[in-house]
Design a protein around this nucleic acid. Structure first.
Lengths: 290, 290
DNA sequence: ACAATTGTGAAAAATTTATCACAGCCGGAG
DNA sequence: CTCCGGCTGTGATAAATTTTTCACAATTGT
């Protein structure tokens, strides 16, 4: 009947596919902080998952327990069993995998990158960069290279919703000189240039600079040559156990910037976002649920 | 008043000397199977320690708690904190900035996302996904949506170097049905679909499935509806203090996959990479030195 | 529009907690 | 040896909390 060797976590994950929205919401909430959240009162669990009390009661029974207390008892037993085994510390990230697994090694490197990047960053510079990017009076150019244009576009896509008056430039394309014709004093260039620094990007930055534009640079720890032209440089550590460099940390900075700019521009943005919602509704581009 | 950094275990051990017989008996029983035994009903704890109910009630109050429920609540909190591990405890990441600074709050959220994602991922599924993506006999289609096409392209750009026989499809474009004409049994679709799941992406996945293709899905913790069609789903936690969701964790998985596939295909890739180097040299796209 | 899912509010049932008074026990002091 | 004082268990009970269940309304997807 009930598989004894199976943890409640396993059992929940297994049924995750057959669950309805509220149930899944609840299930994920339980797994989120496992097993602590399941050991409190039923009502607290429901509240934490933003689900109604009956939903919890119903699901517990669907999972095969006579009632919530029985469910808790099993969780406690499980907990007791764990404690006796190896120490439950997070030695590895993906616990089911050995620590030499690429997932764990890679993750460890990324965490280290983040730590190091954040330790060296100047919050003032970051804030200034955000102010510049948020300023709707300045035209915003976002520039990426061969690989980094994906980051540039990620920033561009979000900025497009937050503010008007911006352009995405791909420095590897041969059309970029056209964009520069319109650049003027006071405009802002957000430039991405990481290892394997690109000549085109440098040239573009030089010309932008010559036209009196302000340059915000996302680069790596060794810094693109563009940094000499940049008013603000934000560098990330990008080392991972791979033949390639990691963009994950730069992505984190970019997303933080998006969030910060969003907040700075919230009043102006609100309407734009609502309009966007309407358009999405009309085009049925997105699904509402499940 | 109450030392916050002290675990209940510490606190009990500290007072162990000043305790009476029954209390000590109870205390040792709690520590015996810590913290599981303390999370059950009071009566069960009393029975387990061979002491009376009032003894437990009395001691809990002596330890400084208003009542048994409060004691339990603290135990649960402690348990939750342990599970998060040492890295998540970081007070501030950018030390020069206050902990309320967006950089710190954002980073903390991303770290938590990474932790939670890695804790729930199935390494076997990940490995299988990498094998599929590395298999050069299968045509590889990489599919992204409105925002996620940047991730898709990031994967595509790297895969392009590592292996031949692949296509980048943007599900929001209206040209994707053309690509499907060529899809056949055994081909692999890597699909990106995160919150604000897109109808086009779902349709595309359905058709791919109908044509006998294998689907690897990158999604969020709530899972795109595509996951029912997918052979392998890799879900990331994407919650950050922002109006938007975070792609940083998904990026980490993608980069791990790139690294893993790179290793699997190293023999075959080596030549391709050298060729690429030559081309880059000839086009002088990159700078040799700073 | 229909069927399934979920939330609301409430009430009843069950369990758990907190106390109390009292009796028994134990060790040590006299 | 006896008495004393503190500790502990018993059994009972009241209070508080928690669980369980209901009927019905609201929501949402098909």
């Amino acid at each position: 009947m009930m598989d004894a060797d199976q943890t409640i976590s396993d059992r929940i994950q297994e049924k995750l596919d057959d669950m309805t929205r509220a149930e899944r919401q609840l299930a994920l909430s339980i797994l989120e902080n496992y097993p602590a959240s399941g050991l409190g009162p039923l009502a607290a669990l429901a509240k934490g998952a933003n689900v109604s009390v009956p939903t919890v009661a119903r699901m517990v029974q669907k999972l095969g327990y006579k009632g919530y207390p029985e469910f808790q008892a099993n969780l406690r037993d499980e907990l007791g069993a764990i404690a006796k085994g190896p120490i439950a510390k997070h030695e590895t990230w993906a616990e089911a995998a050995p620590s030499e697994h690429i997932l764990n090694r890679f993750t460890e490197a990324v965490i280290e990158n983040i730590r190091s990047t954040l330790a060296h960053i100047e919050p003032d510079a970051f804030d200034k960069a955000c102010d510049l990017v948020a300023d709707q009076n300045r035209h915003l150019y976002i520039v990426g290279g061969r690989i980094t244009h994906t980051l540039a576009e990620y920033l561009f896509l979000h900025m497009q919703v937050i503010r008007p008056n911006l352009t995405h430039v791909q420095s590897t394309s041969n059309t970029w000189p056209h964009y520069l014709l319109n650049a003027q004093d006071g405009d802002v260039f957000v430039v991405f240039d990481v290892r394997r620094y690109e000549n085109n990007t440098l040239k573009l930055a030089e010309m932008a600079r010559a036209r009196g534009a302000t340059i915000v640079l996302f680069t790596d720890q060794w810094r693109s040559p563009v940094h000499r032209l940049a008013d603000i440089s934000l560098s990330s550590r990008i080392i991972v156990p791979s033949a390639w460099d990691s963009a994950a940390t730069t992505m984190l900075l970019v997303e933080s910037m998006i969030s910060a700019v969003q907040i700075l521009n919230w009043e102006k943005t609100k309407d734009r976002m609502e309009e966007l919602e309407d358009i999405f509704d009309n085009t049925k581009l997105f699904r509402k649920f499940t």
